[in-house]
């Protein structure tokens, strides 16, 4: 019986490795298998190399590494399908989440549009009208709106209390005639603007009949045009606040704030540190 020598074993193992078999277990299996065939079929007088080359070829169709490829395929077959199923579930969850987010965004967009339309109706109040005219017009033209519980927001600034904000229903606000300084202090206070926004039923942009502010608004019509009245939405989409120039220590400031709390516009006469304070607070609601 032919005996494969140590040198030949080394040669075969080396060749197996060269042919792309990297798994040690598989290398040893193939080595033993080839040796078994050679020892069974080879005669002492036969040419080892010729017989080896013929033998190795029966192990594959194109390349020897196909065996390892097949082995790896089988080894990870189960895991492959587990992974595939996991990825599929992940994909479904991800798509579902995206669909929910898109639906919500779509709904919010729809709501915004809806209230924008409503704003356009109210917007007809012109800047030339005074507060009393505005009150009257609102009551006559929009009794259903004015009779509801409305809240307004205004931002009032002076050097002492940096920011005073309050909420009151529209009727009250009209009665108080927007004497911001005194009224807001006596009204309910909140820890943050976000807290106010959550409790808001209706927000409207309000103005004083202060001529300088009106001019300011008219001058920046491109921005003020974006003001939106929001009804029955528990957060401020767009708000507008201003206050009247007062005697004493206070500064007329006009702000235009979008739904993320970003100031779109502010009048240039306010003190910068107050603006910063406002920006910080508005950042809370982003």
């Amino acid at each position: 019986m032919y005996r494969v020598s140590d040198e030949q074993i080394e040669f075969i193992l080396d060749d197996i490795k060269k042919r792309g078999i990297e798994m040690e277990d598989l290398q040893l299996n193939l080595l033993d298998h080839i040796c078994c065939i050679l020892e069974r079929e080879l005669k002492e007088t036969d040419d080892f190399n010729a017989k080896y080359n013929k033998t190795i070829k029966q192990f594959f169709k194109s390349e020897l590494w196909e065996i390892e490829e097949e082995t790896v395929g089988l080894l990870y077959f189960k895991n492959y399908y587990k992974m595939k199923r996991f990825l599929y579930i992940l994909l479904v969850l991800s798509l579902s989440y995206n669909a929910i987010v898109l639906a919500r965004l779509g709904y919010e967009f729809y709501q915004t549009k809806k209230y924008q339309n409503e704003w356009k109706r109210i917007e007809k109040v012109s800047f030339e009208e005074g507060l009393e005219d505005f009150k009257l017009k609102m009551k006559q033209q929009y009794p259903e709106i004015i009779s509801k519980e409305y809240t307004y927001i205004t931002f009032n600034f002076d050097l002492y209390p940096y920011i005073n904000y309050g909420e009151m229903n529209m009727e009250d606000s009209l009665i108080y005639n927007m004497q911001i300084k005194t009224e807001t202090i006596s009204l309910k206070r909140h820890d943050s603007l976000a807290a106010i926004y959550r409790s808001i039923n209706f927000v409207y942009a309000y103005r004083y009949s202060d001529e300088s502010v009106d001019k300011e608004i008219l001058k920046n019509e491109a921005l003020t045009h974006n003001l939106i009245y929001v009804k029955d939405v528990p957060k401020l989409l767009v708000g507008y606040g201003n206050f009247k120039k007062r005697t004493g220590i206070s500064f007329p400031t006009t702000f235009l704030i979008n739904k993320s709390g970003k100031i779109l516009y502010e009048s240039s006469v306010s003190m910068s540190f107050i603006d910063k304070k406002l920006i910080n607070i508005l950042n809370e609601i982003k």
Binding site: N29, H33, Q58, F59, E70, G73, L74, L75, F77
Partner: peptide, 11 residues
Amino acid sequence: TEGALYPTLHA
């Protein structure tokens, strides 16, 4: 064939 046997044995 060896190409079928060893992958099966390893699996």
